[in-house]
């Protein structure tokens, strides 16, 4: 993080696919302050998920600059290390490993952190308690409801004390009531864990829960609205 207090700084970011035929990001500019909760909205194909992938170092941009948590993602080679330490992902589909228990699923990101098995279990239990799943730690994901699975995924995202949570349509596969519970949980944990929350959504009522709404269109930030 730099002295401006921004945890994410993106300038003129470009990314195209299919030999330049598809311009996913076309000169994107964005700044996000540490501890902020922003939602990214826009129609399908506008570049929301591509932006999230760039912030989460799942992909590299073609041009521009992107600095996240003080790390220049255009230059760093150890993207896996950055993802392990700084980023927690929550996907639309929970993407839990079906043959592992809830507790084991939450521990998965800690394999790269040299944490002892005892401490891994302790941290996972702490988070499962925070998402109210302490009584289901030994269950397999297939036995859980959609909302419970997403809560496990949130615990997994937070387990390595990341600076940023990137949530890609976290309520997309849930009914509205369960979705609201998940959103409140995310917002609550974002405050308690002092973590920056960047959420992609196409549902206006979900977007309004954030402190700022960033609208993306044709690979560019079109509008930034503060909801505060």
């Amino acid at each position: 993080m730099n002295n401006t207090g921004n945890i994410i700084e993106i300038k003129g970011l470009k990314k195209s696919y299919d030999n330049g035929k598809i311009k996913a990001l076309n000169g994107m500019d964005l700044e996000v302050k540490k501890g902020e909760f922003i939602s990214i909205m826009g129609p399908s194909g506008s570049g929301k998920s591509s932006l999230l992938n760039m912030i989460g170092a799942l992909d590299r941009a073609d041009e521009g600059t992107i600095t996240v948590a003080g790390i220049d993602l255009m230059k760093t080679k150890k993207l896996y290390e950055f993802r392990s330490k700084e980023i927690g992902f929550v996907f639309q589909m929970h993407n839990l490993i079906p043959n592992l228990s809830v507790l084991e699923n939450v521990q998965i990101p800690m394999f790269e952190t040299k944490t002892s098995s005892k401490d891994m279990k302790k941290r996972a239990l702490e988070l499962l308690k925070a998402v109210n799943l302490e009584d289901k730690i030994n269950q397999k994901p297939t036995k859980l409801s959609g909302g419970e699975r997403q809560r496990v995924a949130i615990a997994r995202a937070l387990v390595n004390h990341p600076s940023i949570i990137l949530a890609d349509e976290p309520t997309g596969s849930l009914d509205s009531k369960t979705g609201e519970v998940i959103l409140n949980l995310l917002k609550d944990l974002h405050s308690k864990e002092n973590v920056t929350l960047v959420m992609v959504t196409h549902e206006p009522y979900v977007g309004k829960m954030a402190e700022r709404i960033v609208t993306v269109l044709d690979g560019k930030c079109q509008n930034i609205i503060s909801t505060l």
Binding site: G56, R83, N95, I97
Partner: peptide, 16 residues
């Protein structure tokens, strides 16, 4: 494949 994508997203190295 999707699960391997998740493992990469949570910071697993290619070697692991």
């Amino acid at each position: 494949t999707r699960e391997i994508g998740v493992l990469k997203a949570v910071g697993w190295r290619d070697r692991r």
